[in-house]
Computed example of a mutant assay.
Amino acid sequence: MRIALIEPDLRHAEIVSRLLLAGGHACHHFPASAPFLAGAANESFDLLVTDSFCGDAAAEDVIQRVRHVLPGLPVIVLMTAPRESELVATLQAGADDCLSKPVRGPEMLARIEALMRRAGVRRPRNRVREMFGEYAFDAGRSVVSFRGQSVMLTPKELQFALLLFTNMSRPVSRAHILETVWSRRRDVRSRTLDTHASRIRTKLELRPEFGYTLTPLYGYGYRLDQIPIENADSADKARPNERIVETL
Rank of each mutant, 00 (worst) to 15 (best):
L5P: 03
A13E: 05
I15S: 00
R18L: 13
R18N: 12
L20V: 02
L20E: 00
H25F: 04
F30W: 02
A34Q: 04
A38G: 05
A38C: 05
E43N: 09
S44Y: 05
V49H: 11
S52H: 12
C54F: 12
C54I: 07
G55M: 02
A58D: 08
V66K: 01
L70M: 10
P74A: 00
P74G: 00
I76D: 04
I76N: 03
M79V: 09
M79L: 10
R83S: 08
R83N: 05
E84L: 10
V88L: 06
A93Y: 01
L99S: 07
L99I: 14
K101V: 01
R104F: 13
L109R: 12
L115C: 03
E130S: 14
Y135T: 03
F137D: 13
G140W: 06
G140L: 02
G140Q: 00
S142Q: 10
T154H: 12
T154M: 14
K156G: 09
Q159A: 05
F160L: 04
L163I: 15
P171F: 06
V172Y: 00
H176V: 05
L178T: 07
L178M: 13
T180R: 11
R186G: 14
D187E: 15
R189Q: 11
R189I: 09
S190V: 13
R191E: 15
R191H: 11
T195G: 07
I200T: 07
T202S: 11
T202N: 12
K203R: 06
L204A: 11
P208Q: 15
P208D: 13
F210W: 03
T215A: 07
L217T: 10
L217S: 05
Y218W: 09
L224M: 02
N231Q: 15
A232L: 15
D233V: 11
P240D: 13
R243L: 15
I244Y: 12
I244Q: 14
L248G: 10
